[in-house]
Amino acid sequence: MTQRRSVILDLCVQAEFHTLLLLSLYLLFAGHNQPGGGFAGGLVASCAFGLRYVAGGSSALSRSISIPATTFLGVGMLFAILTGCVSLLTGHEFLESAIFSADLMVLGTVKTSSVLFFDIGVYLVVLGMSLLLLQQLGGADGTDPDEVQP
């Protein structure tokens, strides 16, 4: 980035970044019975990385995440589809959901369903997609990898 970075924005983003990621995880796990879910969580996580991009450009973005965006996309798809397949393997219909509850002593009873794993997949796909968008379309200072001569 050749332009000067705004110190206020930079600091705010640094403060907010992890909080946003935490919020996105909360939304992901709360999603079964409450507002939230994989899509909403993924969007919030994308916002966190989007803010990084707004504050520091694509170099800041690439510094804040080292795994390629395509891996997020692929792993997410894999998660979502395999969740469907697990029910197939256990003799149920494709994508049939199951509910588990576990007693974690101090933390109380935790109830979750296999939909959560599907949601994790959606979360990763949304996040991967947004990262890919930021990287591909938001390439900074003329280093757009897509740049072609007319």
Binding site: V75, L78, C85
Partner: peptide, 12 residues
């Protein structure tokens, strides 16, 4: 095909 697509994205 969807599973294969997921694997093919990972093996970018």
């Amino acid at each position: 095909p969807l599973l294969a697509a997921a694997l093919a994205i990972i093996a970018y």
